[in-house]
């Protein structure tokens, strides 16, 4: 029991919460970035531009089918070849954006496909250009259908951030490892706290996602 009290000291908890902050920060930055890029990729896939669309499709297929861990290594060790020196935080965000945007691209594409074709025709008939119609009419409607799936992706992002401890990202998992690495008695308390903290954040999000899903009345996509 004493080990639990010691393990959850003010200093250790503050260090864990700092780590949680990094986890959330990286996840939020990544989900925003990957939504923007994912939407672009998804639209390119949807409208079927010659050469570009198949190439994007292939890119999506390759990235989607690789382990995230590998993408993290590629960005962290590969970016300096392009003249950039990423910190582990930036490397993780970039890796996450590359990986998640391919996931979101597919979500965006099926979201657009779910919007009735008549919408586009109607918008075009009232004088909007194709891209205007896409941006102002189709995407907002598709967005509604996509929100639960995007929240699902956000949850897996938060969980997947833990993998970046391997390139020493100072996230929740890493900070817990630093703490229990310095004292055996803290191992069990730290694992419990890790589980609790991740669970609370992800569970709240999944409840939100379920609410939204009910309200918007669409089907949820599974994400692991």
């Amino acid at each position: 029991m004493q080990s639990f009290i010691d393990a959850y000291s003010w200093l250790n908890m503050r260090y864990l919460i700092e780590g949680l902050g990094v986890t959330v920060l990286v996840s939020v930055a990544s989900i925003i970035g990957s939504y923007v890029i994912g939407a672009i990729l998804g639209i390119i896939r949807y409208v079927n531009i010659r050469f570009l669309s198949p190439l994007v499709g292939l890119f999506i297929d390759i990235i989607r089918n690789l382990p995230l861990l590998l993408i993290i290594f590629f960005t962290y060790f590969g970016l300096p070849n392009l003249g950039l020196r990423p910190s582990s935080i930036w490397a993780t965000i970039i890796a996450m954006v590359i990986f998640e945007s391919t996931m979101l691209a597919e979500i965006v594409r099926s979201g657009i496909q779910a919007v009735p074709k008549g919408q586009m025709e109607g918008a075009r008939a009232s004088g909007l250009s194709y891209w205007q119609a896409m941006w102002h009419i189709i995407l907002p409607q598709a967005m509604k259908k996509m929100i639960p799936a995007i929240v699902s992706q956000f949850i897996s992002l938060i969980k997947d951030t833990s993998l970046a401890t391997i390139i020493v990202l100072p996230d929740l998992m890493h900070n817990a490892q630093i703490i229990y690495g310095q004292n055996t008695n803290y191992i069990l308390p730290m694992f419990l706290m890790l589980a609790i903290m991740y669970f609370i954040v992800c569970y709240i999000l999944s409840v939100i996602s379920r609410r939204l899903e009910k309200r918007l009345g669409s089907t949820r996509k599974q994400a692991a």
Binding site: Y76, F77, L79, P80, R85, S87, S88, I166, V168
Partner: peptide
Amino acid sequence: FVQVTSSTRMPLLQNGN
């Protein structure tokens, strides 16, 4: 200072991190 581990230090140096 950049934190390295035995497995990341060589690639980090080689790649210019």
